[in-house]
Design a protein around this nucleic acid. Structure first.
Lengths: 316, 316
DNA sequence: GGTTAGTGTTGCTTAAAAAGCAACATCCGA
DNA sequence: TCGGATGTTGCTTTTTAAGCAACACTAACC
């Protein structure tokens, strides 16, 4: 290139503008240098650099102090506006730090939303009205995927596939239970139920690839049994309807159908099998993802006020 | 101070923001470093400095590239807006450099405005419609003062007091003439007129302190004559009226009353005296004042198309 | 499951920019 | 005319940014 310097550079050095504005505010370079506690030569040089970078004369070096030229006035106005915009930005960031602003996205497994809502979210949202909280209901796999891909900050899932990249913040034992309608013959057997007893009834199961299904498959392998699914669905609602309208059996954690249990529409029977007992619900986040202050706070409250049973393990 | 760093600094370093935005645009620090042809460590460090200065995490260091956190997104939006504002500013400055915008203030002695208007200003204003040209008519002293105080960029004055701090860009001989009405007895005397001849008639003069008056006083001293002013006024219009309605005489440069001369309302008689012949009109500016490009261009055109007589001296 | 190319990061050195210092030229008012 | 004050210029020292190489780690790939 023939010229190293473009007539107008891509960016204005903030230091240049600072000294420039200070000098013009003070009226002279020397008084500005006194205020800023720097040498006058520094300010003089920086202003000159700014002028050279812009290719325009900005100040009149007027024996008694400095005054802005027309271009200097324009630049000064620009800098003023830019400064208030910057202050506004800093305010926004401060608000974000003080939970005044922000957006939190939750991905929640089926069955956890209402407990979460009544236990934590109502209070949290009331205390932070400026915050936008998005609750995205999804099946277990989607919860994990959304958290992994960053679409959701926090995920709540029952028996999620804990891949690397997904970090479990808190988990709780929530045994996988056999779900049947209240009048089902299984309810009359001694509790906890033997696994084999359930296999005599038609099964409704979630599809392969789901955490629950993996547990069930694992139990089948360990117990050397074969589980034949009469119905496969990725919707818990479908499975609930399935068992409530017939003598079928499905396996779901208790918290996923607290409503139905409380109303007596369904009953949950614990199963005497280690794999089923080991089932856990997890609050998950993306590994090493820096959460926004708001998300961090909500996560903290979810863990503290954990509404899904006794806390089992907390990585905090 | 306990803490050297405030939670939110007064100013955002432009370099930080630049690297920050580039890295996020590129999706990874390394690709950004390739584009900008700098080391990745530089970008990494600058972003970290920005984060520390703000006290907020801005990017997710995500094994495969970087992504913006919520705060980072806000900052990024801010920077985008700031960048377009900056480009707009640079455009304004460029326009100003191309005479597209700007404000020029002229201070003009009585009598010069119409010649200037028809000779230069009409054309200039037509060619630069975005330009604002302010023509401030004033008496000679005020012209000098306005130029000196920076209220006017360019001054045009007849026989101004050339103090230090005022620089004459171009000057032209414009003999100070005796002004009388067409039927005045002086018009029948041989030309150029002897100075003594004029003294026999009542005189109308400008006040002391005016350049014209200084010339007249100087002539009086050299010629060992005493000039008694029957009328003293700081307004040329008054003096014109004075001589046109009686047999009085005044001393004014020819160009200041071209209208009246052309219409035959007044006549200008040259005077055979070196001081009167030496009278000059000047185009003046503030010494060492950096004129805006627009003002500079107008000044150049005024000098080039000089409409007030033959150019005598040009300091260009 | 190990491998591998790619990412961001960290010590260290080198280059560049800013700041400090003293002296200077200039302007302005008394 | 003088004296205080202003902006400026060489020069040095200090601070900051940039370059370089090696590292730790992730994520995809065979």
């Amino acid at each position: 290139m023939a010229h190293d310097k473009e007539p107008f550079p891509a960016h204005l050095n903030s230091r240049w503008l600072h000294y420039f504005s200070q000098a013009l505010d003070a009226g002279s370079i020397r008084t500005a240098s006194d205020r800023l506690d720097v040498e006058p030569s520094v300010i003089s040089r920086q202003i000159r650099q700014l002028e050279q970078a812009l290719g325009v004369t900005l100040v009149e070096r007027h024996g008694r102090g400095v005054r802005a030229t027309e271009a200097g006035g324009i630049l000064l106005d620009f800098y003023r506006e830019r400064d208030v915009a910057e202050q506004t930005l800093l305010g926004q960031l401060a608000e974000l730090d003080g939970l005044q602003r922000g957006h939190i996205s939750l991905a929640i497994s089926e069955g956890y939303s209402d407990r979460l809502m009544s236990g934590v979210m109502n209070d949290f949202c009331a205390r932070h009205p400026q915050l936008t909280v998005e609750m995205n209901l999804a099946n277990v796999n989607d919860v994990v995927r959304q958290v992994y891909e960053g679409q959701a900050h926090i995920g709540i899932a029952y028996a999620p596939r804990l891949t690397p990249g997904i970090e479990s913040v808190v988990s709780v034992h929530q045994p996988l239970c056999a779900i049947v309608h209240p009048g089902h013959p299984l309810t009359r057997l001694p509790q906890p139920l033997a696994l084999d007893a359930t296999l005599e009834w038609p099964l409704g199961l979630v599809g392969h690839g789901y955490g629950i299904r993996q547990l069930i498959d694992a139990a089948a392998i360990i117990s050397k049994r074969h589980f034949h699914a009469s119905l496969v669905s990725n919707s818990l609602a479908t499975l609930k309807q399935y068992v409530s309208s017939g003598d079928g059996v499905t396996f779901i954690g208790r918290v996923a159908l607290l409503h139905e249990l409380r109303r007596g529409q369904l009953v949950a029977l614990e199963i005497d099998h280690p794999v089923f007992q080991e089932a856990e619900a997890h609050v998950i986040v993306r590994r090493q993802r820096p959460l926004s202050p708001a998300a961090k706070q909500l996560l903290r409250e979810i863990v503290d006020l954990w509404p899904f049973g006794e806390r089992e393990r907390v990585d905090w």
